[in-house]
């Protein structure tokens, strides 16, 4: 079961184990969906509570939501530019919120107390499927943004400023989703593993600083992913002269 020979009640290491759901002949990672639904549920609950009775003088949760909205708008506006940031703000914001809540949920909620037949619950972003899905969405988005804004002139970007850049720009289209997905996946998984190993070795006190570091990493990774996604979209819609 574990990678290490001894098994504490809450300190078990399970890497690469999944709870499989078989639907027809497709297979899903059940634990990822379970936690992602909890994350989505939490987000929707927050949003519904905060927007239920909105006033010009904000009170309670509306303040938090407006702060988030403002934060996301600033992020989108600085990266994408004044002209089209409105179209992409929901996408960037959803990426940020989904990744942020997933990461913090994975770091803060003691999922391991819930036993599964196989695999264990954790941040959805610690599964490569999730991060690749998000990264591919970002790739599709910036292609769509570029093509819908500039039409075929979007491809001028590939030979800008000189045609020598062409192969590099083409390679970039592959490295962008690769780096996006692996950065997020690697950071979150590594954090979970470090905490798990430390808890396994020294169950008291010592893991706490690492857990704080994990919270920090989680927030930073969400910000990095959203910022880069916005930057790629901004790069695609930018006008060259």
């Amino acid at each position: 079961m574990g990678l290490l020979p001894f098994v504490f009640p809450f300190a078990e290491l399970e890497v690469g184990q999944h709870l499989y759901w078989q639907i027809g002949n497709i297979r899903l990672h059940g634990q990822v969906f379970m936690t992602s639904w909890i994350v989505i549920g939490a987000l929707l609950a927050l949003v519904v509570i905060g927007t239920r009775k909105m006033e010009r003088d904000p009170r309670g949760v509306q303040n938090l939501l407006e702060f988030l909205w403002d934060y996301i708008r600033d992020l989108a506006r600085t990266q994408i530019g004044e002209k089209v940031y409105r179209d992409w703000m929901p996408f960037i914001g959803t990426l940020f919120l989904f990744i942020f809540v997933s990461n913090w949920g994975g770091a803060l909620v003691p999922w391991r107390l819930i036993r599964l037949p196989s695999g264990e619950l954790g941040a959805p972003t610690a599964d490569i499927n999730t991060t690749v899905a998000l990264a591919l969405l970002v790739s599709l988005s910036y292609f769509y943004a570029g093509l819908s804004n500039k039409g075929l002139r979007y491809f001028e970007y590939y030979v800008h400023p000189t045609p020598i850049m062409l192969p590099f720009k083409i390679v970039e289209d592959f490295t962008k989703p690769l780096s996006l997905s692996f950065r997020l996946f690697g950071n979150i998984l590594a954090d979970e593993l470090v905490v798990a190993v430390l808890v396994f070795l020294v169950p008291l006190v010592l893991p706490v600083p690492v857990m704080f570091l994990g919270l920090f990493t989680s927030a930073i990774q969400a910000l990095i992913f959203a910022t880069l996604a916005a930057y790629y979209i901004g790069e695609a819609v930018e006008e060259h002269h």
Partner: peptide
């Protein structure tokens, strides 16, 4: 382990 989790996600 890539599977249908990816597109569904």
């Amino acid at each position: 382990d890539f599977d249908a989790t990816l597109p569904l996600m």
